[in-house]
Nucleic acid binder design. Structure first.
Lengths: 378, 378
DNA sequence: GGCTGATCTGAATCATCTA
DNA sequence: GTAGATGATTCAGATCAGC
């Protein structure tokens, strides 16, 4: 499952046809490694970049941007600049491989997340949410000079400002959250216990292993089964393990052999879930469209029938062509519904009702019947 | 108490002896106004700058009513560069008037907070914490395209990296927080009800008035009685009102006359607390709400597992997204529980059971386990 | 006055498909 | 690409109307 491939091997293959990089860990620096992947090939990215600000020689590209600040903190400023250059480089590489409707998640702490967020904005990503991971069991502040650092911040962004059809499983998130919208503050324990990878001496393999529950929430929210999820700082492969379990493909980039080895073993041991368990809750948006006149043709509504709103303040009469008429307005169920209320818009399906045995029922119920028949007919 | 003084008036006085600007609102642009204050004269700054929301078209609620958006002229910026220049200018002005051991708080949303955080770091401030204000009652996401934006971010920073003796009332915070360290995630309602300033027509005076509880937490944590607290974007004077109540001096800078008038009346009506009452204040605590997917994420319930009612008449299968499926219905535990019984509503927590060692137990028992952990995290 | 249910509102970067 | 039509979408809490 999780085998390592060389860059050269990938490059000599046709990028179009080549899918050999799916479900693999690419060894190397993330900017260079990502150049080997085809543009627009990734559905979702999760990135947990280093936030050590004393980066030294690890940075890959010189900074090209002008410095217009004047202050007496040159040393410090230079290291922020270096971190910014590093950040822009890997974010640009990620942006190239991301599909137009793909999204990226980046996690960080107050040491680096403001640099990351600014860079995302500067490079043209469009921020969708910032999400707070509240830790149930954070490390205490030992010196008592600050608040206990009990959260980390995630940024969720689309590739472009006008990206509209990115994946967000709104109904699934809501249904899973006691039927109320999922908020931007999430509560999870940090990664400890059996989930935490240890070496033969009982020492943790990676210093900042993220909990699988966090990655699962992210992937369930913003990806679909079969999607390709990239992690440019793969570490010990939490992203890969969760992706495999949830029926997503992964690509990881990692420099350290010890992490790659641990990740590969870990991912190979994962048992993927079945199709039924992975089916995602969808809402009306995903249902096939039904035109109003189909209800007439099916005999569920007849021409001349009277429609009213739920409080019987307005009424409209159905015409044979699938339009309706109220006082001085005629048109679609939506147009007429909006007009009688004086609104710009209206969902006619839920606004208009018919009377059946003395009880009012929205015409949307007939649409449900039609949809069920459509589903049976394929 | 809260009188307005002209810049010229302040300037002609000796800056050393002059304290006439204490407990006043200075009318004008904040950068220019701050030039009139002596350097190193401020103990703590709270700043609620424009967020640069970049809103597109109008937004309507599902009932077609209009959302009252923040589209004020003061929140319009041409570009991120323009916003950054504005941010650096006012932060530099703040830095000059801040005492060497003073600290600054800035609040923002994901639209601007990354720019603010980066600028703070670039200008030599030293970040101490980022703090999350979790809203008990945030505005919903009306289109279902993102997570509900349920928090705002505060950054707390000292003037310099090597500042050691800034004020942090660690013991008071801990005592106020049930004798455990105060965390970086705080829970408060947004400012509504009697606290929200309204004009004679019942409309809100300021679009973004902050709750006094938030300011009280900030001042109790990071200032002492008698300290001078500056607010460069004073608005309707929440900072001034809380400062006066808590025995701190304030200085406010504000451009709009209507806000200044409202703030002055408001502050004059504040009754300062006595010395004894200034010691410990407590905040509201969370009512632990647990969603079904938390049990999955915690590994207490696994995707594919079968749930039944107490008499095993109905069964449902758990999916990875936190929804469940029975015969022809899918959705939340509540929705599906209601559907299989033919009811309108159902408490899925007590209706659905799992089998463990041949005995049925309601899934509510798992929730109890999770609640214990959540309680620890506040 | 008290209770019940309807209405209103809050820092919001909030569509998608067909012609 | 753009214009027009379809039709999807809200939580907590304060306030108010009506009994």
């Amino acid at each position: 499952m999780a085998s390592s491939v060389s860059l050269a091997e990938i490059r000599k293959l046709s990028p179009e046809a080549d899918k050999s990089w799916l479900d693999t860990i690419i060894k190397g620096d993330c900017v260079a490694a990502l150049e080997a992947l085809p543009a627009g090939s990734i559905d979702m990215i999760f990135a947990d970049p280093p936030y050590n600000l004393q980066l030294g020689g690890d940075l890959t590209r010189p900074d090209q941007s002008a410095v217009d600040a004047v202050n007496d903190h040159w040393d410090q400023f230079e290291s922020f600049q270096a971190y910014d250059a590093f950040t822009r480089a890997w974010l640009l590489a990620c942006r190239r491989v991301l599909k137009p409707n793909g999204t990226i998640w980046v996690i960080g702490s107050y040491h680096n997340i403001f640099r990351v967020g600014s860079s995302l904005q500067d490079l043209g990503f469009w921020l969708l949410n910032d999400v707070v991971w509240r830790k149930t069991n954070p490390m205490p502040n030992f010196r008592g000079r600050r608040f206990q650092n009990a959260h980390e911040t995630l940024i969720w962004a689309s590739r472009d400002a006008d990206a509209k059809s990115y994946t967000f499983n709104y109904e699934a998130m809501k249904a899973a959250n006691d039927d109320v919208q999922m908020r931007s503050d999430w509560l999870f324990p940090i990664c400890t216990g059996g989930e935490r990878l240890k070496d033969e001496n009982g020492r943790k393999v990676h210093p900042t292993q993220k909990p699988e529950a966090l990655l699962a929430r992210i992937m369930m929210a913003s990806s679909k089964p079969g999607d390709v999820v990239l992690d440019p700082f793969f570490g010990t492969g939490t992203t890969g393990a969760v992706a495999r379990r949830l029926g997503r493909h992964f690509v990881g980039v990692e420099r350290e052999d010890s992490y790659i080895d641990a990740a590969r073993k870990r991912i190979d041991a994962v048992e993927p879930l079945g199709k039924a368990e992975l089916t995602v809750m969808t809402g009306k948006r995903a249902e096939p469209r039904v035109a109003f006149n189909v209800l007439i043709e099916a005999g569920l509504i007849r021409p001349g029938q009277v429609l009213t709103d739920s409080r019987k303040r307005f009424k409209a009469i159905v015409r044979a062509d699938g339009t309706v008429v109220a006082d001085n307005v005629a048109g679609s169920i939506h147009k007429v519904g909006a007009a009688v209320q004086g609104f710009d818009a209206c969902n006619g399906w839920t606004f208009w009702h018919t009377e059946k045995d003395g009880e009012l029922a929205p015409i949307d119920e007939f649409r449900t019947i039609v949809r069920a028949e459509m589903a049976r007919a394929g």
